[in-house]
């Protein structure tokens, strides 16, 4: 299978960007982190170190490492990290958009409290919707381990963001006409 860097970029740029956000890289750092991911990918492609057919998980694995580097750096200047949550790029009516932003920032806050491997499993499976085999391969762990990480993360997330009827998150939640 021949793969050009150009193709890889076109195919994965949005996904890399989004994943880095999900993995806890601050919005401000995401452009730099994305660039770093692609420089690594370029280097590996050029030196033929990318296993055929495993590009997606390979790219995701790079994201994981880069995100971890950036998170570590961010800890040293955490006082600057309280900022508005990133806005979804979709146009939406304001009330609904506000609700989504609020929910997203709650989700991000919960994810931020998870151990990194659990968070990674959750983001890859629930947001990027990789298969569990892909998740395990990107994490470099057995599939069973990936499952247990995912389940642990799901328990925490569901407890925090719960059902509409529950008050699991301990916060009052508005629910304007939600159509999904």
């Amino acid at each position: 299978m021949s793969t050009s860097f150009r193709e890889v970029f076109d195919k994965h740029a949005r996904y890399v960007w989004r994943s880095l956000l999900g993995l806890g890289v601050h919005e401000r750092d995401v452009p730099d982190a994305s660039q770093q991911v692609f420089l690594v990918v370029h280097h590996r492609l050029a030196s033929d170190q990318v296993p055929a057919g495993a590009l997606r998980t390979f790219v995701y694995g790079v994201c994981l490492r880069v995100a971890s580097d950036f998170r570590r750096r961010a800890h040293r200047r955490h006082e600057r990290l309280v900022a508005d949550p990133p806005e979804p790029s979709q146009p939406a009516d304001q009330e609904r958009a506000a609700w989504h932003r609020q929910a997203l920032s709650q989700l991000d806050a919960v994810l931020a409290g998870l151990p990194a491997p659990q968070r990674a499993a959750f983001v890859m499976y629930e947001i990027e919707e990789l298969s569990m085999n892909e998740v395990a391969s990107a994490l470099g762990c057995p599939v069973q381990t990936a499952y247990s990480r995912l389940h642990a993360a799901r328990r925490v997330v569901m407890a925090a963001l719960g059902d509409p009827g529950d008050d699991g998150g301990g916060q009052s939640r508005r629910r304007p006409g939600e159509a999904t």
Partner: peptide, 30 residues
């Protein structure tokens, strides 16, 4: 459940990403 913060948060997390301008800037940076 539709309407839960969980559903909204996950769908917002899936929807976010770079704008076209950000994407081009990234491409140029690379």
């Amino acid at each position: 459940p539709p309407g839960s913060a969980l559903a909204a948060g996950l769908s917002a997390a899936r929807a976010r990403g770079p704008s076209d301008a950000q994407l081009r800037a990234l491409e140029a940076g690379i």
